[in-house]
Design a protein around this nucleic acid. Structure first.
Lengths: 195, 195
DNA sequence: GCCAAAAAGAAGAACGCTCGTTTTATTATT
DNA sequence: AATAATAAAACGAGCGTTCTTCTTTTTGGC
């Protein structure tokens, strides 16, 4: 029974995901056809359907992946960037988000993923879970603010986490929808307002 | 030549826009078919196409309308709620946003509109323009903060406006995607972080 | 170690279905 | 009666998906 190397299968799958991700980021999930994905990936219909049961599976995979990537940068902050001030923490987070600024990239996918999740309960639960994990970790970050005296001892860590997440999400929207908004300029406003 | 009253025409158009808005808010622009719109509005294909050239026009109208509604609440703030503290200003804005929380409503439409604008340059320009107008007005609000001594005199008003807009946009995303987030709870975090 | 046989992978044409839209027929209004 | 407004059937295009064919890779007997 012949079988191709697992590494090859993984590479093919990644090839498909990346190509579809570029298409989806540019035009949204429903404005890109499967034929667009075939063309972008350089593969045929048969090949793609060997790795994914259908378009919905591809969408779910990529939408969750995009939000997951943002979550990863929050986790990285927690691993290495503790005891920063609120402003410096946000500087770090927004700077990481800067990596998602390209037009084929994660930032735009995330916006599409939000919309898609509104009409797809299963996907919504996946994305909501990722967001809750982010909130958990951002609450830990907020706890660090309290510990370092940046926030009052009775501050609501989880509520502060919502605020931090908003500032990340809002940056993505304003950069991609409203137009060019550099991390530097955005941080100026944050520092002014956070004092 | 019989002609129906203009008021009747306007009412019909509004009927279509509202029905389509409910569909779009629930399932997104491309997951709702025109037939869904016909059913929701209680009208036939012929009737709808008498008022709109096609689905794209309907989408553009409704997407711009959703963002425009948020803009209107910012303008209302400027007209009546000057010289509030940053925290109270946000309380007012988020409270207004609370009106967009229902599942058929503006909040969800706005998220879909962002996604749609990414792949549609014309719509993107319309939405970007609305956002810029909001930023202009929020910059005036920020100027009020400086005047009242809440912010340093050299604060960058426009940059602060971006932050305020983020806090509004992030609330919408977190309420509709992550799950129930009351304005009250959200404001706790804002007050903690803004000091 | 090599060669046939078998099994899996990939390609691309083809299919059926749904969608947006148009066209035709009917109803209502002046 | 004449004409606008509406209803509803019908159409053509484009979609996601499947099916058939061909190629590539692996296996087992010699």
């Amino acid at each position: 029974m012949p079988k191709v190397a697992q590494a090859h299968l993984d590479a093919r799958r990644r090839q498909i995901v990346e190509a579809a991700g570029r298409c989806f980021a540019r035009n949204g999930f429903h404005r890109t056809s499967m034929q667009d994905v075939f063309a972008e990936s350089g593969l045929s219909a048969g090949a793609v359907y060997r790795y994914f049961a259908g378009k919905d599976e591809l969408i779910a995979d990529i939408a969750a992946g995009a939000v997951g990537q943002v979550r990863a940068s929050v986790r990285a902050l927690l691993d290495s960037g503790r005891d920063l001030s609120p402003a410096d923490t946000l500087a770090r987070l927004i700077d990481d988000l800067g990596a998602f600024r390209d037009p084929d990239g994660t930032g735009r996918l995330m916006i599409h993923a939000w919309g898609e999740s509104l009409g797809d309960p299963a996907l919504r639960e996946v994305i909501a879970a990722l967001n809750r994990e982010m909130l958990d970790e951002l609450a830990e970050v907020a706890d660090g603010f309290v510990g370092a005296g940046h926030l009052p001892a009775d501050a609501d860590r989880r509520a502060v986490a919502h605020t931090l997440l908003s500032l990340m999400q809002g940056y993505v929207v304003q950069f991609h929808v409203t137009g060019d908004l550099t991390p530097e300029r955005y941080l100026v406003g944050l520092r002014d307002l956070l004092g």
